[in-house]
Simulated scan of single mutants.
Amino acid sequence: MLERELSVGTMSAQVANHVGARIVSGEFLPGSALPIESELCEFYGVSRTTVREAVKSLAGKRLVEVSPKIGTRVLPFSEWNLLDREVLAWRLQAQFDGKIVEDIFEMRLCFEPRASFLAARDGTAEDHALIEQHFRELVAAHEQGMPVKTISESALEFHLAIINASHNGLFVTIGSAVKSALRVSSEMLQRHATRPSEDVALHDAVRTAIVARKPKEAASAMEYLLAASRERLLPLTVDAAE
């Protein structure tokens, strides 16, 4: 049961979050119908307005389609907006397995090395200063034994600073959209890190090449960092499944 004293907007977001997670986890299969409006109202203890807003949100993410004749049906996986932050977060929560890790890193390998190339070539002095700042924060977090979330946030901000420094609008949009995926993978890596100094060294190689304005070296360093991260993270998904 959801908290009744929350605003309608917040309540609808909670309902959407719960139903969306149920869809992504496979509880509601593609082609199947969601429970009718009155059933959802009773199940969640909310008004029809709240349920309608929640369903509208899920339709906007292409998880469901609403039809006056057939009701609300779950759309095929191919229709889902997989770059939507919430959809991605639901997938990670529901099925953090090797396939999703591969998908995340294949996507990152498609644009982060190039973003590093562009950051080295086209990044401003301010861009590079921000990358330096986030790298120093990452180093300090490691040296001070900060909590995993603090370290992973520092690493996340470092990567986002590089993406922003590319000045490629589409890269920046993708980086923002997949922030939840970057955060989850970063936290997993940091939580199971056995050689933190190696992680710092990999980030340092990227930073050094970017601020030295060596585009090719920056791209190669980022590709190596991502490949190493993927190889460290994949075995963890096997452990989690077991």
Rank of each mutant, 00 (worst) to 15 (best):
W90D: 04
V74K: 02
S67R: 11
V206Q: 03
V178N: 06
P215K: 05
G9E: 08
A33H: 13
A119R: 02
V184Q: 01
A94W: 06
L34W: 02
G175S: 13
K179F: 12
E132N: 07
I174M: 11
H18K: 15
D239E: 15
L156N: 10
S32Y: 07
Y224D: 13
R207K: 05
R73F: 05
P35N: 11
S229K: 12
S38R: 05
V238H: 15
S25V: 14
T237N: 05
L29M: 13
A205C: 12
A209Q: 03
A16C: 11
G45S: 04
S116M: 11
H159F: 15
Q14K: 13
A21R: 11
Y224A: 15
V74R: 00
L233S: 01
S78H: 08
L234E: 08
M107W: 07
L83C: 11
E153W: 09
L236S: 01
E187Y: 03
L225E: 06
P147E: 02
A240N: 11
L189V: 03
A201D: 09
V238G: 13
G60F: 04
G98D: 06
E198I: 12
L189Y: 02
A219L: 08
L63K: 00
L118V: 10
R73N: 04
G60Q: 03
H159E: 14
S12H: 01
N164L: 13
S197D: 09
I36R: 06
K61L: 02
L63P: 00
L58Y: 02
D199N: 07
L63N: 01
T173P: 07
V24I: 15
A165T: 03
R183N: 10
E153D: 14
R207S: 01
L160K: 13
D204E: 14
R191K: 07
T49I: 05
V211C: 01
F96A: 09
A177Y: 11
D103S: 12
D122C: 05
N17C: 12
I174L: 14
I36T: 09
I70T: 07
L156Q: 09
L75W: 01
M146F: 12
G26M: 10
L6Y: 07
A181G: 11
I36F: 09
L58P: 01
L6T: 06
K61E: 01
F43K: 06
L75R: 04
S57F: 06
G169Y: 10
P35Q: 09
A89D: 12
N81H: 05
V51W: 00
Q14W: 07
Y224G: 14
V19A: 04
K69R: 12
C41L: 07
L29C: 10
N81K: 06
T49G: 03
E27R: 15
M1W: 08
P215Y: 04
V55M: 09
V8L: 08
S186K: 04
V51P: 00
K179R: 15
L225Y: 11
A33M: 11
N168M: 10
R48F: 00
Q93K: 13
A177R: 14
R73D: 05
I100P: 03
P113M: 13
R91Y: 07
E27H: 15
C41A: 08
T208Y: 02
P30I: 04
L225G: 03
T237V: 08
S25A: 14
F111T: 09
E106R: 09
L2Y: 00
A240K: 13
G145R: 05
V211K: 00
L6C: 04
E39S: 13
A228T: 15
I100S: 10
R195N: 08
V74Q: 01
